[in-house]
């Protein structure tokens, strides 16, 4: 493989010009590594994408591809080893003034994958939902806090009488809605939803997805939706980012991507979507992705815009092929 491009920290100033209409979140040449020395492992390399206000962008890839790692970098849990993340023109990766970092915690919230693990089992639902409010003192008096919490819990379709209960008394879907209530009550601008429905029963997935969409409509929220199930992603997202082994391989609007999957990995993901028709499903030909089709020994691959807001990762010759395939139809 060709030598990777090196970026200077000076290429990422603490502030970049930002105005209304620009993407709220920009990820620029982000590398995320774990461990150090010989045990170092690069989970994400040279990630680039933008998220606009009010948009739902889905991050799709297999287990271990770095989806969650990127999501956690946005909420500042995982540090970036190179590159930068900008939120409204302000660099949010790396060191930040304490006050700004705190404000960012309120603005960018996270919904976790496993509702069984992400709620404190020894706290009541009231404390769990109030936790963020208490941290930021987002209420005048205790009466207002209780009102806010009660509104939050009814907004997610649960009952105020649940507030005195403990998480283990709830079903998976109910717990996930508590998790949503606790982030939404903070009145965030941006939510990182880390596979919020993959641990849920199929019958209640739609309920949780509709709830997320409802909040987006009502409050103009922006989502980064992390998932591995493309059929769900199609339902919820405006744009899709496909990631494979820490590298972003394709970015496009949802219908564009479903109509013209170009990268072989995306094609294999598409072909893996089950069709709810036994005859078609049986006759379907599975496309298996073979990474050895790429020859990057001579040419250096990169993520290139091929028009139609469609980005594909590949070497120049591959990009030509992809362009022809896109336009040839």
């Amino acid at each position: 493989m060709a030598e990777e491009k090196k970026y200077n920290p000076a290429d990422f100033p603490a502030e970049i010009p930002y105005q209304e209409g620009d993407p709220v979140l920009s990820i620029r040449h982000v590398d995320i590594t774990f461990g150090s020395g010989r045990k170092q492992f690069k989970a994400v390399s040279d990630a680039n994408f933008d998220i606009h206000k009010g948009e739902t962008v889905s991050l799709v890839g297999e287990s271990g591809s770095g989806k969650t790692t990127i999501g956690r970098a946005i909420v500042r849990i995982n540090p970036c080893s190179a590159g930068a993340i900008y939120y409204k023109g302000r660099k949010i990766s790396g060191k930040m003034p304490r006050k700004e970092a705190r404000e960012l915690v309120r603005k960018i919230q996270m919904i976790f994958q496993d509702p069984a693990a992400s709620l404190n089992e020894r706290a009541t639902i009231e404390y769990i939902i109030s936790e963020g409010l208490i941290n930021f003192k987002l209420y005048k008096d205790d009466k207002e806090r209780v009102e806010k919490v009660e509104k939050a819990i009814t907004d997610v379709g649960l009952l105020p009488e649940h507030l005195t209960r403990y998480p283990h008394e709830f079903s998976g879907g109910q717990r996930q809605r508590v998790g949503i209530a606790r982030s939404v009550v903070m009145e965030p601008e941006f939510i990182v939803a880390d596979e919020p429905i993959s641990a849920l029963d199929v019958s209640i997935r739609a309920q949780v997805l509709n709830l997320l969409k409802k909040f987006q409509r009502e409050r103009g929220l922006t989502y980064l939706f992390i998932a591995h199930d493309l059929s769900i992603v199609r339902f919820i997202s405006d744009r899709i980012v496909v990631i494979h082994l820490g590298k972003i391989v394709e970015v496009a609007e949802t219908e564009e991507l479903f109509a013209h999957p170009l990268h072989p990995y995306t094609k294999s993901l598409m072909s893996a979507i089950p069709i709810p028709d036994p005859i078609l499903e049986k006759e379907k030909e599975l496309f298996v992705y073979d990474p050895s089709v790429h020859d990057y020994s001579v040419e250096e691959p990169s993520l290139v815009d091929i028009g139609h807001g469609h980005f594909v990762y590949g070497s120049p010759s591959e990009i030509e092929k992809y362009k022809a395939a896109r336009e040839g139809k």
């Binding site: 705190r102 404190n120 706290a123 963020g132 606790r182």
Partner: peptide, 26 residues
């Protein structure tokens, strides 16, 4: 490093309260 402690971090809970509310009760 359980997920609920991570969630508290995302909500900006100070360490003292993480210890007293999330860890000691367990």
């Amino acid at each position: 490093d359980r997920e609920y402690n991570l969630a508290s971090r995302c909500l900006g809970t100070p360490i003292v309260r993480v210890v007293s509310k999330n860890i000691l009760p367990y």
